[in-house]
Design a binder for these strands. Structure first.
Lengths: 220, 220, 220, 220
DNA sequence: CATGAATGAGATTTCATTCAT
DNA sequence: TATGAATGAAATCTCATTCAT
């Protein structure tokens, strides 16, 4: 018999995510998760200490699927405007999935709140999820300032913080919308809001040459 | 004693908010709420249909305390920069209380998720809470554009959306911090982030006269 | 509704004792106890913190029924031989009931062993159950020595200890017997063993006058 | 490796005894026993039908270690007083170990109570454990009467029963004591109680010559 | 024979809700 | 209306036992 097959663990996590997605963490039942994963309840407890631990692992695993970065963003030879645009696209494209994931993660709080160690682990993961974005963003902004595309006087940490705050805020507010969401809290809204922010950063020169520069770039 | 004494109802809601604040919605027990409100459990059910209804009412009542607006903000005779500054102060001052309130409100989701009608009510309230801000903000921005303090080409809806997104984003991210929070997610961070946004809106003329103008204004 | 009616508590304890008597403490199920007591499982937990606490209370309540003392034993005007004989009769008469009770109490150990506080409570009760006997016995022996019926050189504490040890030993060993018990571990055995002990205590004078003295006493 | 290696069986029994000693039979887990014995859980079931059977075997094995008899006791050439004294020493020396063993054996009841056949086996073993003592004791007492050291009129079966009852009673009561046990329920108490009993048996002649006789004996 | 992951019946316990007083 | 003892469905978790490897 294979020792604690990872495939089974993955099946359990998938089942748990499904069950939570449907009824929320509060309503998730170990019985139901076991049934969907096609394992016994005992096996659930062989893999995870408790219901809380399973739900925490479910949230953390869910992160893996949503923390993705477009390769183009990391290419330092590209024009900074394109790199920022690619980042915006990445964020906008994943927006709806992340909104759903986010609503679940928020619910996990009430389940995990009881155990300080799990709370710490969850919050730490939630903080970590955006750290990559912040760092990436700062390095792009620095490159932009160096190349003269972005205004030299911008306060990079504040701008990066605001970029992320806007994104988080839209994400958060999107969770309040149902059925017919306010367009501001859709992928299009993400593009518009972060596009506006990018505009503010451009140097006067970049502003003048924008159209031509971008066109050359595209044709290259 | 009049039926459904409002005083008793208020006592119940206060007790419920306390209990939820301490242990989260998941851990809130009707027994404990009744004990703190100094009423019987039966009385709880005379005022509220169910535990879910009580918790929903608790969240909604909690909104009342946090949706406050500084009178100065609404005074159209003031300089727009002061009105925006007053709004920022209002948001920054209430920040920590709202963060706590917000974490509770998020948890409430998992409790009311099961009932579509309650879910609608909660989400609607959550949407409404910021509507006042958005409208107020837009009217200030319009006044600013009219008076020449703000740049004429700004896209007021986008700017207002971003203002609120930044605020919401900081609020949301602040919920992930514990003990030694990142300064970006503190009242000071609110001032810095929204201050930066305000900067972007000023017209060239306002930018030049800022120091003197503000000084005159203050002395007036 | 009467507040925690003692009658209900008593019904629960009775049901618990019945269930334990039949299958042992290990096999006692809260469901079954609730069913027999004609209360809900929840009510069981309104009266008793846990299963352990209920079983402990059951054992302690069981003591009440078996710690009985013959009034005659306490009458200091009677001849010491008669008082000792009455005590022996008391112990022999209750013997079979106490044997059954004892076997249950022993089983309770394994259930209650986990909780140090309960263990202490149980052991303390088990010690206390015989304290009355020891004290009573010592006062009778002292009276016997004073009246010259018992030998003056007897070591009263040692004799009292041995009296109780013999009784406890027979009680304990009786628990090992089934169906066709060794006569030594029956009420008759109790009379014989403790009768022998009493014999050893009589003074030479009492020994000579025994037949006549007792006869007079009986006729008095 | 021979099938059902006795060494492995012994390791299992030792592990089981350790586990039971620490937490009691109720708390003993097959997992833990297997871990300590360094075998798999499956192997446990190759050696023992069930948990009950293993625990029963554990109690029975525990008996082997405690049913020991001093060789001197069996030597018919010695003075009966010395043989009884040696027996008392044997019982007193092993007292504390037997007390612990006894407490475990009592707990075993609740585990094996469910199975009549195991119950019979356990009770039979518990009866057998003292049979050797009784027989040995009776043969010593008979030798004592024949040699004139013990009073000729003693009722040997009753005396033997009482000797064993006193010992069992002290053993049993010792199980109720914790930390600071009553001296009556210690090895010293065993010596005192059984010493008193021996005293009652001596013939007048033996009583007179006791000091000198024993001294000679010791010097021989 | 040995292993130990998997099983799943069944145990204890909780707590929102009810309703007789 | 207020009370709070009683309810019991339903939840989590345990652990002796099995059996494919």
């Amino acid at each position: 018999m294979p020792p604690h097959s990872p495939e089974k663990k993955s099946r359990i996590l998938t089942a748990a995510r499904e069950v939570c997605s449907e009824g929320g963490y509060e309503a998730a039942r170990m019985d139901e998760i076991a049934r969907r994963a096609e394992v016994s309840k005992g096996t659930l407890y062989n893999f995870f200490e408790s219901k809380e631990a399973l739900l925490l692992a479910t949230v953390l695993a869910s992160h893996q699927d949503y923390v993705v970065i477009l390769p183009a963003v990391e290419d330092p030879t590209l024009d900074v405007r394109d790199r920022l645009a690619a980042l915006i696209e990445s964020l906008a494209d994943g927006f709806e999935g992340i909104v759903r994931h986010n609503m679940l993660a928020q619910q996990a709080w009430s389940v995990v709140l009881g155990s300080p160690s799990m709370r710490k682990e969850l919050l730490s993961a939630l903080r970590a999820i955006y750290t990559g974005y912040i760092e990436q963003l700062q390095s792009i902004l620095e490159a932009g300032v160096r190349s003269g595309v972005l205004r030299s006087e911008i306060d990079i940490p504040v701008v990066a913080t605001n970029w992320l705050a806007i994104y988080s805020g839209l994400l958060y507010r999107a969770g309040f919308e149902e059925d017919d969401p306010n367009p501001a809290y859709t992928p299009a809204g993400v593009r518009q809001s972060l596009g506006w922010l990018t505009e503010q950063l451009l140097s006067d020169e970049a502003r003048k040459t924008r159209a031509s520069a971008r066109e050359e770039n595209t044709h290259a």
